[in-house]
């Protein structure tokens, strides 16, 4: 290396650092220049050596570049593949549930035909099915819309069944949807749907990742909650409820969208039929029916 008077301890390490920063050129160049003097003799090996060195350097750089960039398309390919598979599965679900609803309505029609003699039974069946959310419901009611505040990096317009928002924290969660739904039930709603997913007595509004799941169907903002009932009573009760005042406050503070309007005619879709798998009615001959006992569950 560069000739330096030997220094001890701290001086040496400091000298090393100074050397590192000031003598950036490889010392070999200076040494070689000193050896051959002022008139550099042209050696036969100069050109090939230079060429070999440059080829090596170019090769190294390109190999590193292509190696670094080769991985990226692979990852993108896997990602796209997964996305398309999820989309395909979602389409399949939509197709199948549409088919199920179609078959259900055909079944209803056939059964109505079969029950045409028995008006009471038919009426009771209709009523039960309506309450269970097994048939589409039409009537006046209230529509509540909860909207996530607009994000600056909103890449795609949110839509039902579309991609759930990624890793961005959302303000509105299942709890908000649930509290509005519960308030509407309490206010006298007879049938409720969330983003065109009809709620049944066994419906659950849950949260998975950042997506709100209503009966396992992902719903995203805006959450449109439609409730059929006496529109005036619903609107009055809902407007004076604690839930409504909470979201009015939140709308002012956090910028979420909160709006409810009365509608003269709302149409709620039927829920895809779900047959109970475990529960079954007691056999008719079995007597007596067990008296329902109140069991208080603590949460």
């Amino acid at each position: 290396m560069t000739p330096k008077p030997p220094a001890a301890g701290d001086q040496l390490s400091a000298q090393l650092l100074i050397d590192l920063v000031t003598n950036t050129l490889d010392p070999g160049y200076a040494a070689a220049a000193r050896v051959r003097g002022h008139t550099p003799p042209r050696r036969w090996s100069d050109r090939p050596a230079l060429a070999v060195g440059c080829v090596l350097i170019g090769f190294t750089l390109v190999v590193a570049y292509s190696h670094t960039n080769r991985g990226a398309p692979e990852a993108a390919k896997v990602h796209n593949d997964l996305v398309s598979r999820v989309r395909a599965a979602q389409h399949e679900v939509q197709r199948l549930s549409a088919q199920a609803q179609q078959l259900n309505s055909a079944l209803t029609a056939l059964r109505d035909q079969a029950l045409s003699g028995d008006a009471t039974l038919s009426r009771q069946l209709d009523r039960d099915q309506l309450l269970a959310g097994q048939t589409a419901a039409v009537g006046p009611g209230l529509q509540v819309v909860l909207t996530e505040p607009p994000r600056t990096s909103a890449s795609a317009p949110p839509r039902r069944g579309g991609p759930a928002p990624g890793d961005v924290a959302t303000i509105l969660t299942d709890r908000d949807v649930r509290s509005v739904v519960n308030e509407l039930w309490a206010d006298g709603a007879e049938a409720i749907s969330v983003n065109d997913v009809r709620l049944t007595p066994t419906s659950a509004i849950r949260f998975a990742g950042n997506a709100v799941l209503v009966d396992f169907a992902p719903v995203t903002t805006p959450f449109t909650i439609r409730a059929i009932g006496n529109a005036d009573v619903l609107a009055t009760n809902f407007a004076s409820s604690a839930v409504a005042s909470r979201y009015k406050t939140l709308a002012g503070a956090d910028g979420i969208g909160f709006d409810f309007t009365e509608h003269a005619k709302l149409t709620l879709p039927a829920s895809p039929a779900t047959a109970p798998r475990i529960a079954h009615r007691p056999s008719r001959t079995a007597t007596p029916l067990p008296t329902p006992t109140l069991t208080r569950t603590t949460r």
């Binding site: 050109r47 230079l50 060429a51 070999v52 060195g53 440059c54 080829v55 090596l56 350097i57 170019g58 090769f59 190294t60 750089l61 390109v62 190999v63 292509s66 190696h67």
Partner: peptide, 19 residues
Amino acid sequence: IAALALVAGIVLGLVLRPT
């Protein structure tokens, strides 16, 4: 020569695309 050799090295890397 240096520039030519550098380009040659780059082309070599692009053509061979070694893993």
